[in-house]
Design a protein around this nucleic acid. Structure first.
Length: 275
DNA sequence: GACACTGTTGCTTT
DNA sequence: GAAAGCAACAGTGT
């Protein structure tokens, strides 16, 4: 489900409901989801207070009192909802954090792909899934020069490189198609063949598209909803993704859908140049 | 009923 | 090592 804008939307919605509140009880209905020992996980969390909620790539980081942080990834379908204590649990609820103020944070996830674990806050950056992440797109030090150098270390296909999360984080299957369209680059292009001008457009596209998508509360094509159960609206701004057989607004060629390493990929065959 | 498809990532195979 | 394939899982559409 979620790419960077959806993860950021979840965080923005959770923050006012969760920060400053203390965990009184934790229920785990699907232990495989917890990468720590589940008993240890529960015991550590009791009596801890949520201090902050942050993001690194598509990972949500809940900072707790006692210098522990919860690293959580929603994968395809994970959702957090904050509900009244006596409210019914949604279908596919797997972890429930009960709070002292009469509410509960519920993690529900139809496909059970999501994962979470506790680490010491000062060891978040060293956690193995965090350590290998590339640049945050809004980091001012992530410049076109830096990006181009990284792109030139890669062969294969640009779309695959941008999805890998180890050059730049946050893009998934929807936004990567939009970014490549913005930059007039064919998804099968070889990253090593890109120029500084390409890197500049790509980077500009990444920032602009992600920023607008955050503003619109993310994209809902299949199932994304925020912590208040609301859908996003960026699907109304998609130029190519899910737009097969519609006409490109730049040159009116028909948007094509292909499979690229198993992922559905949408692009304009006329104005996205293969390099 | 079978099969294809879905917003992610990480492990296995080639 | 790089790149492709597949697995984790459940639901929906054809």
């Amino acid at each position: 489900m979620p790419e960077l804008p959806e993860v950021q939307t979840v965080i923005n919605n959770l923050k006012p409901l969760v920060i400053g509140h203390t965990v009184t009880k934790v229920d785990i209905f699907y232990p495989k989801m917890i990468l720590n020992d589940p008993h240890e996980f529960v015991n550590k969390l009791i009596n801890l207070k949520f201090i902050n909620i942050r993001r690194r790539g598509k990972y949500i980081l809940f900072d707790l009192s006692n210098n522990e942080s919860l690293i959580s990834h929603l994968r395809m379908e994970g959702k957090y909802s904050v509900l009244e204590n006596n409210a019914d649990l949604p279908a596919h609820s797997h972890v429930v954090f009960w709070l002292e103020n009469g509410s509960k944070i519920v993690y529900h996830d139809t496909r059970k792909f999501g994962r979470m674990h506790l680490v010491k806050t000062d060891q978040v950056a060293d956690a193995k899934e965090i350590k290998k992440l590339g640049w945050e797109p809004f980091d001012p030090q992530f410049t076109p020069d830096v990006f181009l150098k990284l792109l030139h270390t890669r062969h294969g296909k640009i779309k695959v490189a941008l999805l890998s999360q180890d050059l730049v984080v946050g893009l998934g299957n929807i936004y990567v198609d939009e970014v490549l369209y913005y930059a007039h680059i064919h998804p099968k292009s070889n990253p090593s063949h890109l120029t500084l001008s390409d890197a500049t457009f790509l980077q500009e596209g990444i920032k602009k598209i992600l920023k607008l998508a955050i503003k619109k509360g993310g994209t809902t094509i299949f199932s994304f909803k925020n912590a208040n159960g609301e859908i996003g609206h960026f699907q109304n701004y998609l130029k190519v993704h899910s737009q097969n057989n519609k006409l490109c607004e730049r040159d009116h060629a028909k948007i094509q859908k292909i499979k690229l390493n198993g992922r559905s990929t949408y692009f304009c065959p006329k104005c996205q140049i293969l390099k």
